[in-house]
Design a protein around this nucleic acid. Structure first.
Lengths: 230, 230
DNA sequence: CCGGTTAAAAGTGTCGACACTTTATTTCTG
DNA sequence: CAGAAATAAAGTGTCGACACTTTTAACCGG
């Protein structure tokens, strides 16, 4: 019973496991699969028309992303994120990305300024909050990558999707892209770019930390008190 | 053909994969399996008297620990660590652990002082460099754990074994426990404890960073220029 | 109608098998 | 004897099966 793939497109990567990982990740991050939902291997196997082996690998990968968790008896469920989790994620971002900014600023070139400038311009034209956030994350990823610090990048990847999951959640609460958020985001990014391009690593680090803290304040305000979703 | 287990003790965890992970990890960290060594699933499977399934999981776990790496064709080999890797590891430790120290200091109690005090005393009685390092790592882990920051702890775990691998490597170069290293380590740890207990989070963070930087300088000196081992 | 007992269902851990790909070896051929 | 082609060996990706454990559901006596 080969690929029945009841869902989306079937990208022909030569790795079923990675493919499934990506698909499940999308659904979890977007909230299509709700936090707390249990993910049983045989069920997923049938759903994806695959055997349990690649499913198992996908679940392990998702656990690594912090999107699912295993209980004592190895049962898997989508990890519910609380306000505390959100704060943890943001504080990690501050630590990791300000470090990345410090390193990146020390080797910043005109090419990098161009790339970020272009990203910011697209931010100004973003139609939805989701689009804006996507560009936001993309820009931060750029800095992390530029740092060339593999372990830093690895740690960052370890929280990246959790962060996007939080974003998607807040977006569901406030769907429409108001004037305010975009203005604030874009301004903050311009300041950040200036700092990265200033040739002053410490300033870049500091500015990055402030930038992230700012977005935290804003998002945290519309976060529920405890479990976002059961 | 059940457990022939040609190696060490057979701890009866209820999870073969974890068991194999732990055993392989020990051998890699200690240098018994040299960097660059290729790790083929069927070979390991036979060696551990297991099927490929748990072996595969173990390799994935070790990749997560940064101890092995997969190439484009999914072949696995023990990750060779260079001086650059060592620097990356140390800079990550500085970032993560100074953050952990800041958080831990804010909630430090007499109980914690006691625990660390006891650890330091054991350091003074350490007979070998390996023993001293083990206590060292244990102490740092304590701080990370006390921080209660799960993502910070996760990131720390992501470099922990790589660090121990570096340590084991330098120890092979300088086997005997000189007077100097111990005195320096212990003194530095006492200063660190004082900072953690000072009620000043910023001081604790700073002291932690300095402490780690100090040990880096010392270790780096006896690191080879490039690939520690092929 | 409830708590407890038993039976069915669902789930995980591990195994061995097979197809296909990559790597190593052997065998030709000029 | 070198180099290319053919062949063998080794390795990974995925599958389906089975044993054992945990959950869930059914059943029963009070």
């Amino acid at each position: 019973m080969p690929p029945s793939t009841p869902s989306a497109s079937n990208s022909n990567r030569r790795n079923l496991a990675e493919d499934i990982t990506a698909r499940l990740r999308r659904e979890i991050v977007s909230g299509k699969i709700k936090p707390g939902t249990s993910l049983a291997e045989p069920v997923l196997a049938e759903r994806f028309g695959a055997s349990r082996a690649p499913i198992r690998e996908a679940l392990i990968a998702l656990e690594r992303d912090g999107l699912v968790e295993f209980n004592d008896r190895s049962r898997t469920r989508v990890r519910p994120l609380t306000t505390i989790d959100f704060e943890e994620i943001c504080s990690m971002r501050m630590a990791l990305e300000s470090m990345a900014a410090r390193i990146a600023a020390a080797q910043w070139t005109a090419k990098d300024t161009l790339a970020i400038e272009e990203n910011i311009q697209r931010q100004e034209g973003a139609a939805t909050l989701g689009e804006l956030s996507h560009l936001d994350v993309e820009m931060h990823e750029y800095v992390v990558r530029l740092s060339g610090h593999r372990r830093l990048a690895a740690a960052w990847r370890g929280i990246r999707w959790q962060f996007e999951m939080c974003l998607a959640y807040t977006h569901r609460l406030q769907q429409k892209l108001e004037f305010e958020p975009r203005r604030i985001t874009v301004d903050s990014h311009r300041r950040l770019l200036a700092a990265l391009n200033s040739g002053k690593p410490e300033l870049a680090a500091k500015t990055m930390a402030t930038h992230i803290e700012g977005s935290l304040e804003w998002s945290l305000a519309q976060f529920p008190v405890e479990q976002p979703v059961a």
